[in-house]
Design a protein around this nucleic acid. Structure first.
Length: 498
RNA sequence: GGCGGGUUGGCGGAGAGGUUACGCAGCGGAUUGCAAAUCCGUGAAGACCGGUUCGAUUCCGGUACCCGCCUCCA
């Protein structure tokens, strides 16, 4: 069996991965707070841990991996949006408006992450469905002397857990010296964090032993992972920015509530994403969502390819140039896969498996960059079986790849009964510009056939340069012509040609 | 102030203590009505300063710069 090695943030070392249960893997990854569209940074852990999920399924079997990714639907930004809608005259209670908002954003999240080729996790628990287990865990923490109620709040007592700070390599005293913590008079220690807080009438709330209120952010992951995966499980993932305080607090809560259990064994953190060398932020004007990119015509496969190009443990920079390069490679792949079956060996790729060297690359702490290098090798050597198997393991959807990126070819045909130009494509021929390209391609083929006899190429060259200026690559081949809408393709410029 | 990540050829980006990474772009050639695509060939590297070693871009120490976290954040 493939040996998987993963870098464990908790031990700061690359370790051989051994599941607690030898043939059943349990993984928990911190998911989105569903208050708005997912931005590109949100997509990185989704894709990274999707590849890990796929690798684990490959090694242990599809039914031997449970992947939990939570949905945080209790959040002040969600409340604020619901309140804004009510003030703008929207009908319904605040709770109904909150529900409406989260239903909207969850649907967006699913659509956007689907477009990136991410498999849905086994479970996607919503915080609001697990309030009771959270309350029970908080009561337990109080009973065990790790938490205390004060002025409607319940706080975790960080001084009661000696290992607090171990994951992130901090000490409570050092952090207090840095002193940017909220100093509330009812806290025993400035680092104590909220498990439960009171809700006003303008905020969603649940009844609890401490009055009507809502859970703090960290407790949901402790409660939901325990409910769905048990007190000990294999992998816990998320962005490095969650290492502190979120994951530190999760550990404190879970280990203190279940001291006999181990909680997560391996901690994995992906580094941050930047855009053109800077942190993505609205104020810098380089903030965009996954949907923004998709709407701009960047295929999900291209986004995925770029994200997998950099090892997850390194900061990664999103640039337009990278997207262009990724699209160039993927177009070549799409073209190869979409080639006329008569011109290449016929291979049944339905059961194509990724070569062991690809599995080994991923098993080496998810070396996705090396896997992409192997992908390029298979393309160059025209190893279709290996190529398809690798694409599948890496989570690239073959049909949407060829649909989005394959070229249109018009080849002269004469079978003795009829002659003309036969279209060969896996491209989006059904779309508006697809039909335009088909019409223009046929026209170009005919003009060229005439020009080859008359030696007057002026009309061919005129149409060709018009196509090129619309961002369509034009290839004149012996057998016919091919039109390849490229990275800078602008269908609007084709309208004038019709 | 504390904790963590990064620095590789024009650009992106890996592995490996000694043997070509690879991709994109460039250059030369083949090919083409002209191009494009393709194929063949090809130059180019590891922030800086020390140390270990027969040998370091790869290990160790230091310096510089960039980025993140310590407050909601993937």
């Amino acid at each position: 069996m493939t040996t998987i090695r993963l870098h464990n943030t908790a031990t700061r070392a690359k370790e051989t991965f051994t599941p607690l249960n030898p043939d059943y893997v349990r993984m928990y990854v911190c998911g989105p707070t569903v208050w708005d569209r997912a931005h590109l940074g949100n997509a990185r852990p989704v894709v990274v841990f999707d590849v890990l999920f796929r690798l684990l399924r490959h090694v242990y079997g599809p039914d031997h991996v449970t992947y939990v990714r939570n949905i945080t639907d209790v959040d002040d930004k969600i409340n604020a949006e619901a309140l804004r809608r009510r003030q703008a005259g929207a009908p319904g209670t605040l709770e109904a408006l909150i529900h409406q908002r989260t239903e909207e954003t969850i649907a967006w999240y699913h659509a956007d992450m689907d477009a990136l080729g991410a498999l849905r996790p086994t479970f996607e628990p919503r915080a609001t469905d697990y309030i009771r287990p959270m309350v029970a865990m908080i009561e337990d923490l109080i009973a065990r002397g790790h938490a205390y109620a004060a002025e409607g709040h319940v706080l975790f007592d960080v001084r009661s857990y000696a290992a607090y700070g171990r994951l992130s390599g901090r000490s409570v005293d050092d952090m207090i010296a840095g002193a940017r913590v909220e100093v509330a008079p009812f806290k025993r220690d400035p680092m104590d964090f909220v498990l439960w807080k009171p809700s006003s009438g303008e905020e969603p709330g649940w009844d609890s032993p401490w009055g009507r209120g809502r859970p703090g952010w960290h407790i949901e992951c402790s409660a939901m992972s325990h409910e769905l995966l048990g007190g000990s499980f294999d992998i816990h993932g998320g962005g490095i920015d969650l290492q502190f305080p979120h994951h530190e607090n999760e550990i404190a809560q879970s280990r203190c509530a279940h001291p006999e259990e181990g909680f997560a064994k391996v901690w994995m953190h992906n580094e941050m994403l930047q855009v053109e060398g800077k942190k993505m932020s609205k104020s810098l004007g380089n903030f965009f969502t996954v949907r923004d990119l998709l709407d701009r015509g960047v295929p999900g496969e291209v986004i995925r390819f770029v994200l997998l190009g950099t090892h997850y443990s390194k900061p990664m920079d999103w640039t337009a140039e990278k997207a262009r390069q990724a699209e160039t490679v993927l177009r070549k792949i799409a073209e190869f896969l979409g080639e006329d079956p008569l011109t290449k060996d016929s291979i049944d790729t339905q059961y194509a498996k990724a070569p062991q060297e690809v599995v080994d690359a991923l098993a080496n702490d998810l070396n996705t960059s090396s896997a992409l290098t192997l992908l390029a090798t298979y393309l160059k050597n025209r190893q279709e079986l290996q190529l398809v198997g690798t694409l599948s393991l890496l989570g690239f959807n073959l049909s949407s790849l060829t649909t989005a990126l394959a070229p249109f070819s018009f080849h002269a045909g004469d079978n003795g009964f009829a002659s003309g130009y036969r279209l060969t494509t896996h491209g989006t021929e059904g779309s508006v510009y697809g039909s335009m390209l088909i019409e223009l391609g046929n026209r170009l083929s005919e003009l060229r056939a005439q020009a080859l006899k008359t030696k007057d190429f002026s009309s061919v060259d005129a149409l060709k340069s018009a196509l090129v200026s619309a961002g369509v690559e034009v290839r004149m081949e012996k057998q016919g012509v091919s039109l390849v809408p490229g990275v800078g393709f602008d269908p609007a410029k084709l309208e004038a040609l019709q």
